[in-house]
Design a protein around this nucleic acid. Structure first.
Lengths: 196, 196
DNA sequence: CATATATATTCCACTAATGGAATATAGGAG
DNA sequence: CTCCTATATTCCATTAGTGGAATATATATG
């Protein structure tokens, strides 16, 4: 049920085709709600059936016609209603934590590899969020403050992971850490958004 | 595919019935991989079919017989293999962040209510993790260090949320925050695990 | 005495999500 | 000239996950 509202958020900025929405999911909304194009197209069809959007076919030559969806007043109202519903925080769901939880039945070298891998991944994601955040940081409009805040959750989360992974490596495999001195040139990241 | 391994982790501690596993999911493993009992029973049947566990019916009177599953060598091997596979960090998936992202199309009072609600929820969850963590903190066994580390991810995450939510309230709705002085008696929590 | 809770499993309808094939063409890189 | 990427949508098989009914009884709470 949530994907439809994520799509309505996208449509509330202006009319879009399924392709447009899928692209926006890839580069922004998808940070917080990932969805494949097949799912998006299907859901947009349902949005139309529910009267939350109207569709208009825009002829093109060479490629399939664009089907542009526009949000209706009912759609806007549904979005408002949705935001008034009490929302529970999502559960954590991470099989790597399950591995740690059962670490005695699991391959320690595998865990080490995955910790190193995660440090990289989370640094990358952190960098992505920082980049997106930079584009907005001068603005004080409500809309941009909302986006800033959402990105800040991402930045905090990714940074905590990087920090935790390096500490986990030290706790579990101190010998392994001694060998790698260059992996986390990152310590300033902390003060940057965790303090201040 | 991951649920089966979470169950194998549970079984690697000793033979268990579906009921036992479901209970353990509710109180520990489920912090990191939530599953309903219907799903667990189904998956345990498949575990048996795959030869990763063997089942033995233990007669009882008054209630349905217990069907106790024991992990096999194949099961243990599968668990090891799984932990050697590179694992990608899961995507964030939180519809509240989607609401923030589209804050201009959404009900601000709803957002405020949800922020307040989340502060409570995340404080509760944080307290749960701290409690579980306390039970293990004196131990240095590999197995308990693994569990400690997993719980520490939870503690960090929940604490970051509480902190972020209060800051978000201030940024979005400063007048509303002035009225509530008693909501977050929490500031010491930070130093406790984020520094040190 | 009634009610709720704990024990223990099976089954099923339903919704959500994954992942990729299929179709069709323009435009740019090598 | 070929290959890749971008544009744009439809369709579908499969897996994962939700949520609750049904069954059966002991024990504890009020």
């Amino acid at each position: 049920m949530a994907l439809r509202y994520a799509i309505l958020v996208a449509l509330s900025e202006g009319p879009k085709s399924g392709y447009d929405v899928a692209k926006q999911f890839d580069e922004s909304i998808g940070f917080f709600w990932r969805a494949r194009h097949s799912q998006i197209y299907r859901e947009m069809g349902k949005l139309k059936e529910s009267g939350f959007a109207v569709a208009e076919e825009v002829p093109q030559s060479g490629k399939p016609n664009r089907i542009v969806f526009t949000i209706t007043d009912e759609g806007r109202e549904a979005l408002l209603q949705w935001s008034r519903e009490p929302s529970e925080p999502p559960e954590m769901k991470d099989h790597f934590l399950v591995q740690l939880y059962g670490i005695e039945s699991v391959d320690l070298e595998g865990v080490r590899q995955n910790l190193l891998r995660r440090i990289e991944r989370h640094q990358d994601r952190h960098a992505e969020y920082v980049m997106k955040h930079k584009l907005l940081e001068d603005s004080n409009s409500l809309s941009d403050v909302g986006k800033q805040l959402a990105l800040e959750v991402g930045m905090r989360w990714e940074w905590e992971w990087v920090d935790w992974c390096t500490k986990a490596l030290e706790r579990l495999l101190p010998e392994a850490v001694a060998k790698m001195t260059n992996v986390v040139p990152f310590k300033q990241g902390k003060t940057k958004h965790a303090e201040q």
